[in-house]
Computed example of a mutant assay.
Amino acid sequence: MPSQVFVRGLLYLSLTVVGVPGNTVVIVAFLLLLYRENRLLTADAIILHLACVNLLVVGVRCLLETLASFHLANVFGDTGCKGVIFVYRTSRALSIWLTFLLSAYQCLSVAPPGSRWVPVRSFVSNYLSFVFLFLWTLNTCMSTAAILFSFSSKNESVLANDAINVEFCHVNFPSKLSKQANGAAQVGRDVVPMALMTLASLIILVFLYKHSQQVKGLRSGGGGSSSGSSGAEQRAAKAVVTLVTLYVVLYGVDNGLWVYTLTVRKTMSSSLTSDLRIFFSSLYAALSPLVIIVSNRKVNSRLRCLVQKNPVVEKAATLSTM
Results as ranks from 00 to 15, higher is better:
S153K: 02
K210N: 12
E65M: 15
K179Y: 09
V244G: 03
K309S: 14
V25L: 14
E233N: 14
L205H: 12
Q180F: 04
E167I: 14
L283Y: 05
V131T: 12
Y247T: 08
G114Q: 04
S109W: 01
V75P: 01
E233I: 12
V299K: 04
Y88N: 11
S109K: 14
Y12E: 07
T267I: 10
T140L: 15
G83Y: 02
A185E: 03
K298S: 15
A237R: 05
V53T: 10
N139W: 03
V291F: 02
F130V: 11
G183F: 01
F70N: 09
S295I: 00
Y35P: 03
V87P: 00
S3A: 13
R277A: 13
S271C: 12
K154V: 12
N23P: 05
F76L: 06
N23L: 13
A93E: 03
L177N: 08
V307W: 08
L40A: 07
N182I: 08
S226M: 10
M194E: 04
T198G: 15
I47K: 15
A51S: 15
L196K: 06
V171T: 06
L148V: 15
V240H: 00
S226R: 10
G59D: 02
V191M: 08
G9T: 04
L40H: 05
Y35I: 11
S109M: 15
C305R: 10
L128D: 03
F130D: 10
R304C: 14
P174Y: 01
K266W: 10
D275V: 07
S115V: 02
V215D: 05
G183K: 06
E167F: 14
T263R: 07
L243H: 06
A160Y: 04
S274G: 09
Y247P: 02
I293Q: 09
P2I: 07
A73S: 11
L262A: 14
L10H: 09
G224T: 03
C62I: 02
W258A: 10
T273P: 00
I204G: 02
M197K: 11
S103F: 01
S125M: 07
R39M: 13
P113F: 02
T321A: 12
K210D: 06
N296W: 02
G252Y: 01
V215F: 01
S295C: 15
R39F: 13
T16Q: 04
Y284Q: 12
R121Y: 01
A286D: 04
V171S: 08
L276T: 06
L15V: 07
T321M: 10
N74M: 08
S69C: 14
P174R: 06
L67T: 08
V118W: 03
F132R: 12
L218A: 13
D254R: 10
G252D: 03
V312D: 07
K298W: 03
A181L: 14
S122R: 15
V244D: 01
V87H: 01
V75C: 08
S225Y: 04
V20N: 08
S152D: 01
A316V: 06
D78A: 12
